[in-house]
Computed example of a mutant assay.
Amino acid sequence: MPNRKQNTRFIIVGSIGIAFTLLIFYFSLTSGTYPLTTSETFRTLFGIDHISNHELVIFEFRMPRIVIGALVGLALGIVGAILQGITKNDLADPGILGIQSAVGLAVVLYMFIAQGNINGMSSFGIVGMSVWGWIGGMVAASLLFVLSRYRGELDPKRLILVGIALNAGFGALTLFISLKMNPHDFEMATVWLSGSIYSASWQQIISMLPWIIFIIPVLIWKAPILNILQLHEVAIIGLGVRANRERMILLVGSVGLISASVIVSGSISFVGLLAPHITRRLVGIHHQHIIPISGIVGVILVLTGDWIGKTIFAPAELPVGIVISIIGVPYFIYLLIRKSRKVT
C-alpha cells in the first residue's frame, strides 16, 4: 500500500495535472482560425452574450473537439497503464497489442458495407460503429488470450509477440478493405485512421460516455489486484489471486475503452505508451496512483497534440495522431535502447 508521502505526492501531481489540463482547455477554446478574445469566449460560454457566430464556433466546433480529446486521452492513458501492468512489459500499449488495429478494421469494414461517411454521422451510425468496434476489439482480445496461453496460464511475454503479429495482420486487412472503398470514403477513412478529432460532435461524446462512466471505476477498483499481478506467478497463486480471471476482467475493460476511443478518434498511437512512463516517474509504482494520473497525462498529451496540430500549421491542420507520433517514435526508440542495455 502507498505510504503517506506517496499519497501526498499523488495529490500534488494530480492537482498540477488538472491545472495544466484547464490551461490547455483555455488555449484550445480561444485559439483557431476564427479568433476569439478571452472576454468573448467566457461571455459566450456562460450565456451572457448570444452572438450566433461565437456560439457556433464554441459549442459546435471547439467544445466537442476538446471534450472528445479529453475523453480519448483519459481512456488511452488508463488503458496503457492497465496493459503494461497485465503484461509486465513497459513497451505494451493498445497499438502494439493489435487491439486498436482490430477496432479500426471493424469500423472500416462497417463503413465499407454501410457506405458510411465519418462527417455528419447519424446517431444510428455511431451506435453501429460502436457495436462493430467493440466486436472487433473482443475478437482481438480473444485471439490474444487463446494464442498467448502457455501450460494453461497467460504468458505476458507471448502476449506481446502475439499482439505485434495481430497488429500487422489487422493493419494489412484494413488497408486492403480501404482500397476497395469509393474515393470519398477512402479519403475520410485515411484521415480518421491517422488519428483525428477534428470532426468531433456531441453525438460522439454521448456514445463514448457510458464506456467511460462504467468501465473506468472498475479498472481503478482493480488497481490493488494489478499490483499483485506484478509479482511472480508462484507468489500470485500463494496469495490466492486467480490471475487469469483478473487479467481477463482487466483486458475486457481495456477493450471497451479502446473501442470507444478508436470509434471517435481513429488510432491515436503512443498515448498509452507515453502516459504510464511519465506517470511512474512522477508518482511511483503503485497502480492506485498510476491509473488515474496516467489518465490525466493522457488528456494533456491529446489536448496539447491537437492544439499544436491546429495552430502551428494553420490554416492547415495536422491530425493529433501524427503530432503525438512525432513525439512518440523517438521516445519508443529510447525505451528500446534502454531496455536492451538493462538486459545486457
Results as ranks from 00 to 15, higher is better:
P2W: 13
N7Q: 15
R9Y: 11
R9Q: 13
R9N: 11
V13R: 07
G17A: 11
G17D: 06
I24Y: 02
F25M: 07
F25D: 03
T30D: 15
L36H: 03
E40T: 10
F42S: 13
N53F: 09
H54A: 12
I58Q: 02
M63E: 07
R65C: 04
I66K: 00
G69C: 03
I78H: 02
I82R: 02
Q84S: 08
G95R: 02
G95P: 06
I96P: 05
I99H: 02
I99K: 01
V103E: 05
V108M: 08
G120W: 06
M121I: 05
S122W: 00
G125L: 08
V131H: 03
W132E: 04
V139S: 09
L144I: 06
L144S: 05
F145M: 13
V146M: 09
S148F: 07
Y150E: 13
K157I: 15
R158N: 13
L161Q: 13
A165P: 14
A165R: 10
G171F: 08
T174G: 03
F176G: 09
N182L: 14
A189Y: 04
G195D: 05
S196L: 02
I197M: 05
W202C: 04
P210V: 08
W211S: 11
I213D: 11
I220S: 11
K222L: 15
A223E: 14
Q230Y: 12
H232I: 05
V234I: 13
A235D: 14
G238T: 11
E246T: 07
L250R: 03
V252D: 10
S254K: 01
V255E: 09
V262Q: 04
I263E: 03
I268C: 08
G272D: 01
G272W: 00
L273K: 00
P292S: 04
T304L: 14
W307H: 04
W307T: 09
G309F: 02
P315D: 06
E317G: 05
G321S: 08
V323W: 00
V329I: 12
L336V: 08
T344C: 15
